[in-house]
């Protein structure tokens, strides 16, 4: 594994890398004002939300090596909680985002807590079963009567009431650009939080649990607390992703619980990007999801097959990922070029 992946950059280096990142974020946020709209604005919104799921996976599974395949459970519970709060309690979507994320977080904690006692493949299998069981529950009687069955639950999307008075064309752009801004801000906050946590002392404790749990425990690390708090932070991201995804894209259907939809793309991004590096999976998230959309006509519904093939190849040939490795190489190349140029001046 790359040495750089787990060493804390110096203060000066951190400031140096924050400036370009801020510049890229600013340009990205201005895309709608540069004329981006329609299909691709919608795609970017979706990719932003997927980043939260990718980071959720990377922050917990990438550091502790407890591969949490139950992320769709957390995402799905948040989405259904939002829909149910709106339908049965009349809570407007705008106000249901945070409560639904909180409900999903509590549910995930209660359900996952016992499975944190088992390790390795056992934890992964247990976690994978949860969304599959939930998908069965949602579509079976009598629950389907309340949860909408295969068709799901529909409602007015986020800020629809504010846009109602606008002409149809303007309304679509208003909603699309608002969703893009909200999802972008959520993605930026999620990235900063994940990065800060992953490279903090606590983040390194999570890594110590992943690398040798017995050694960590015997060296003074409270491994139960580390796993629990790590899981809480990571699940918060997945819960929030589920809530805002549901708020922007009704109806909520059983699809959110299906691992092929909400687990395979983020998992591919995490492994392609380099587990536990945060930066690598972030870049990989945008890369694979945008490439997939661009190649929709070519690969179409073969997406999952392609992702799975990519995963197998990566796990066999380069389990430490590619994107973070290329990113650090590029960064070093740019730094040396800048140093050469400034030396000449």
């Amino acid at each position: 594994m790359s040495r750089l992946a787990f060493s804390k950059p110096s203060k000066l280096k951190r400031v140096g890398s924050i400036l370009p990142a801020l510049f890229i974020a600013a340009i990205y946020m201005l895309l709608p004002t540069f004329g981006l709209r329609g299909f691709w604005l919608d795609v970017l919104t979706r990719v932003n939300i997927f980043l939260l799921i990718t980071l959720s996976l990377d922050l917990y599974s990438g550091t502790t090596f407890y591969l949490n395949l139950g992320v769709p459970f957390t995402v799905g519970c948040a989405a259904y909680s939002l829909a149910l709060l709106n339908r049965y309690l009349g809570v407007p979507v705008e106000y249901a985002i945070l409560p639904s994320a909180a409900i999903s977080l509590v549910l995930s904690l209660v359900i996952f807590l016992p499975s944190l006692r088992v390790r390795g493949a056992y934890f992964s299998i247990m976690s994978l079963l949860l969304p599959i069981v939930m998908a069965g529950i949602v579509t079976s009687q009598p629950f389907s009567l309340y949860l909408g069955g295969e068709g799901g639950i529909t409602y007015s999307p986020l800020f629809f009431s504010y846009a109602r008075g606008l002409p149809v064309k303007e309304r679509a752009f208003f909603l699309q650009s608002t969703y893009f801004y909200i999802s972008s801000i959520a993605a930026i906050i999620a990235f900063i939080v994940s990065y800060k946590v992953a490279y903090s002392d606590f983040g390194f404790m999570m890594r110590s649990v992943g690398q040798d749990e017995l050694l960590a425990e015997a060296s003074g690390v409270n491994t139960v607390r580390v796993k629990l708090v790590g899981f809480l932070i990571s699940s918060s991201l997945a819960s929030f992703a589920g809530s805002i995804y549901a708020a922007m894209r009704p109806p909520v259907t059983v699809d959110v619980f299906i691992p092929a939809n909400t687990l395979v793309p983020p998992l591919t991004a995490v492994i392609l990007g380099g587990m536990g590096t945060i930066v690598g999976p972030t870049i990989a998230n945008y890369f694979i999801l945008l490439v997939y959309e661009a190649l929709w006509d070519v690969i179409g519904r073969w997406r999952v097959v392609l992702y799975m093939c990519l995963l197998i190849v990566l796990v066999l040939l380069r389990p430490q990922g590619i994107v973070y490795y290329l990113y650090t190489k590029l960064k070093r190349l740019v730094s040396s070029k800048i140093a050469e140029l400034t030396a000449g001046v």
Binding site: D201, M205, R207, Q211, L215, A218, G220, V221, N222
Partner: peptide
């Protein structure tokens, strides 16, 4: 009470500094 294990047992992907500092930060 501290201990070292039989055989060399360290965190393989953490630099020496973090191998040591994590225990200090825990206490």
């Amino acid at each position: 009470i501290s201990r070292i294990f039989q055989g060399m047992r360290v965190y393989p992907y953490l630099p020496v500094y973090y191998n040591v500092s994590l225990s200090a930060r825990s206490v």
